[in-house]
């Protein structure tokens, strides 16, 4: 397997992190998220007061989302190396992961649309904002399937030299757990289970960050230890 191609995939993930932090947080000021409890007027004001930041931030997010794709492909290609692990798990990861990318792309364009014509009816802006946040933060299922497929693959790995250490499986299972509360945000406009809440937003975000860092390091080691074919 071509090592430099893999290293490119790996470091593109680091680029994703940088672009997302710049775009989502620094430019668009979307972290912490605007509260679902705000009125339509307040949401419209939020967009108007930071129009360029949001528009530019979304471009950065698009780039960042693109950079996530090779990372997901890399995970699957390493999963394919695991002996005794059915290849179907690698394909499941691929699908689950690429859906997670789509789940970010659509909200990015919805936020862009909301910022495109700020003089429109505030209720429409609010609806676009609502949809974007719900799609981004609530769709836990592809991510959980992705995590479970990685976890199972690692546990079933019987290679002479394990591709990933076994505890990586458990980090994946833990992240899947951390994403469950996100499903509750459909019921709440305030409190810890709203889309800006401690348990429905921040917990999954922290879980994702930990997962990402663990996978990054595990992949780096796996590539390094790989025998050149």
């Amino acid at each position: 397997m071509n090592k430099s191609a893999q290293y490119f995939c790996l470091w593109s993930a680091a680029a994703m992190g940088v672009f997302v932090i710049i775009g989502w947080w620094l430019l668009a000021h979307f972290v912490p998220p605007p509260s679902p409890g705000w009125t339509a007027g307040e949401i419209a004001e939020f967009y108007v007061s930071n129009l360029t930041g949001i528009r530019t931030g979304m471009i950065f997010m698009l780039v960042g989302a693109g950079f996530f794709i090779p990372f997901i492909a890399l995970i699957s290609s390493q999963m394919r190396r695991m002996e005794h692990t059915p290849p179907v798990l690698a394909y499941t990861q691929l699908l689950g992961g690429s859906m997670s990318v789509m789940i970010i792309l659509i909200p990015i364009m919805l936020w862009t649309t909301a910022a495109f014509r700020p003089e429109r009816n505030p209720e429409i802006t609010q609806m676009l904002n609502d949809a974007a946040w719900l799609i981004t933060a609530m769709t836990f299922s592809p991510g959980i399937i992705q995590n479970l497929s990685i976890g199972l693959a690692v546990l079933w790995d019987r290679s002479a030299k394990r591709i990933f250490p076994r505890w990586v499986a458990y980090v994946n299972f833990w992240m899947a757990l951390g994403f469950l509360p996100a499903g509750l945000m459909t019921y709440f406009k305030t409190g810890p289970f709203a889309w800006n809440g401690l348990l429905a937003f921040w917990l999954p975000l922290v879980a994702f960050t930990i997962w990402f860092n663990v996978m990054f390091i595990a992949l780096m080691r796996a590539i390094r230890e790989q025998r050149d074919s």
Partner: peptide, 9 residues
């Protein structure tokens, strides 16, 4: 050890 990563987490 992985089980304990999950349990403590």
């Amino acid at each position: 050890e992985g089980v304990w990563v999950f349990i403590m987490g």
